[in-house]
Design a protein around this nucleic acid. Structure first.
Lengths: 153, 153
DNA sequence: TTAATTGATACTAATATAGTATCAGTTATA
DNA sequence: TATAACTGATACTATATTAGTATCAATTAA
């Protein structure tokens, strides 16, 4: 049970960068390098987000992407919806036969309930919220880019 | 985001049948037919459950499978663990570099929290619990097997 | 004019999920 | 005691999803 696929993961990280740069455009290249995401793959992800009006682009030199809305309005929930087709119950037998077999229906009902819980949780998580946590983390631990030799095991 | 794969789904339905038959053995064939599950595929699922000591088998004529424990002790949680490798965060960067990039870590933390919620929910769902709901559903709607012509759209 | 950019699109590769087939061994029972 | 109804084990194939690559046209700041 993989909760987030790469696409969603990359999308969130790209959005966090855009949230950080506010009004100015950020190019796909910069985001790909900084976040260590395959460039062309990220481009596809960004295109998808344009289609869903989460971001806008500017072509040419100095071009790039920026948010169309307040980061607090972008919910991880929606990103999962876009890149993973939301949460899907294992085969919905609705209508088809009212319910070919009862145990499948009971199960289904139970899963839908849990999915609703997950849905609600992911709805609470916004890019804005994540961004503030990120800032806080960076305040508390401003090291990293310096020495702090990585254990070469 | 697919919550349950076929294997888990089939496993649960098979276990519900075993819960219904209590002490007597039920063959894979019967379960496959009644639950409309591909026979050989189900066999594989059953083998996996034997390996995890959820069920035992008896070979030969009149053989089959039965539970090793009270249905209330079998949690859907565990089945997801067995058939879907549990809930996995999108790439754990732990230790590797303490955290190559911060936004990934913040994200990770948030997801882990939600996964814990999911985990807790699925832990509450047991085969015994589902079985009782199933019985209740069958009591309230004892029709089905009779006429009730399926709409041929 | 040109290098840095996005738009669009068509691939390939890797992995996971779903399903099939086969043969050997066991056992109730006719 | 032969045999049909079973499971054990294992090796395959097919399909779908996820991840990643490549290419070329159009745009634009400098």
């Amino acid at each position: 049970m993989k909760v987030l696929t790469k696409k969603t993961d990359y999308a969130i990280r790209a959005l966090l960068m855009l949230a950080a740069s506010r009004e100015s455009y950020v190019s796909a290249k910069i985001m790909a390098v900084e976040q260590d995401i395959p460039y062309q793959f990220l481009r596809g992800v960004l295109q998808e987000m344009i289609r869903h009006n989460l971001i806008v682009s500017k072509e040419g030199v100095q071009g790039g992407f920026k948010l169309t809305m307040d980061p607090d309005e972008i919910r991880v929930n929606q990103l999962i919806e876009i890149f993973q087709g939301g949460v899907q119950v294992s085969e919905c037998m609705f209508r088809k036969q009212i319910c070919a077999n009862r145990s499948r229906c009971v199960l289904r009902h139970e899963i839908m309930r849990i999915e609703q819980v997950v849905q609600n949780e992911f709805e609470k998580v916004t890019i804005g919220g994540l961004f503030r946590k990120l800032e806080l983390a960076n305040q508390l631990k401003p090291a990293l880019s310096t020495s702090e030799s990585v254990p070469t095991t």
